[in-house]
Design a protein around this nucleic acid. Structure first.
Lengths: 171, 171
DNA sequence: GGGCGCATGTAATGAGTTACATGATTGA
DNA sequence: TCAATCATGTAACTCATTACATGCGCCC
């Protein structure tokens, strides 16, 4: 349901057409969703059927027509509903990267250190790009702030693991 | 592939039967995977076909026979491969909870505060249960440590958001 | 004339969950 | 005797991704 919440939330700010939504998602909200283009179009169609959004075809010149969506009253209710639920609960996150950590001792220490340093680099890169991304007004900005905080915590964590490995290697 | 890595990793320590694996996953590694029983059985079958693991049926008394799996040489290679890859890369995490945050200002401030406090409670609960869980030896223990760190960071983050909302409400 | 950005979709596929189905043993 | 735990699976389904398909406008 969090994909629906996302689309309804964006449409509750102002009407948009599909391409525009997809642009916004991939450029500004990549850190909070993976939703792909086709999936978004599909979801929009489904939500239109359910009466949460209504569409209007707008043709400009000879371009392919845009399907412009706006949220309906029913959709606005659903949005409030989903939003409250989302905010009040904690949705546990599973870290795929932890699977590797679990079996860290299946490798020689030096190799483990090398690999984890690579990972650290990747996280660091992600952090820099999150920090240099354009800042959004209002609560939309929270997404990036959270992302940055998370990545910082990840780096601190990796540094601790690396240090522990270093200690272990010496003794 | 991280599910395969997980199963191979466990089987590389010692052979296990399906039920045993599932017990271990749900009791000790819930924070790093969601894998359900049926899915695990299915994956084990698939990995057996691919020659990564081999199975042996063991019957004790009149009980339903156990399918005991052990990792093959080919499987051990794949394991090393997947492990290195997993450790060296950062797999971005998407926080479903951020979708709600993005639209926080669609609600009156007091309500937002109330809902986020509920969420904070839930995170806090998860943290306590992570901290009181039995500690695993070796690198397996890292999973829980990471989980605890992450949850602490989440609480700190929520506290900051709550404080900012409080400030905003006063001014 | 060629490639990129705009704009939308469908169809096949896949990974994983849910619900269902079975049946023996063990302890209250 | 009744429920819980042990032990395994199948079938239907959902959700989302990938690959594919189309075609105009704009700029170099």
């Amino acid at each position: 349901m969090s994909n629906e919440l996302l689309l309804l939330g964006l449409l509750s700010r102002h009407e948009m057409h599909g391409y525009q939504l997809n642009e916004f998602l991939s450029k500004n909200l990549a850190s909070c969703t993976d939703l792909k283009k086709s999936s978004a179009y599909f979801l929009l169609g489904k939500m239109a059927q359910q009466g949460w959004v209504a569409e209007e075809s707008v043709q400009e010149g000879n371009r392919p027509p845009r399907r412009v969506f706006h949220i309906t009253d029913a959709g606005a209710d659903v949005f409030q509903q989903l939003l409250r639920q989302n905010l009040a609960t904690y949705t546990p996150v599973t870290f795929a990267g932890d699977v590797g950590l679990a079996f860290l001792d299946a490798l020689p220490t030096e190799e483990a250190v090398g690999l984890l340093k690579e990972r650290r680099e990747a996280v660091s890169l992600a952090l820099h790009s999150a920090q240099s991304a354009p800042h959004h007004p209002g609560s939309l900005g929270l997404v990036l702030e959270h992302q940055a905080r998370h990545l910082q915590a990840e780096i601190a964590w990796l540094d601790q693991v690396l240090e522990d490995l270093d200690q272990a290697a010496k003794s």
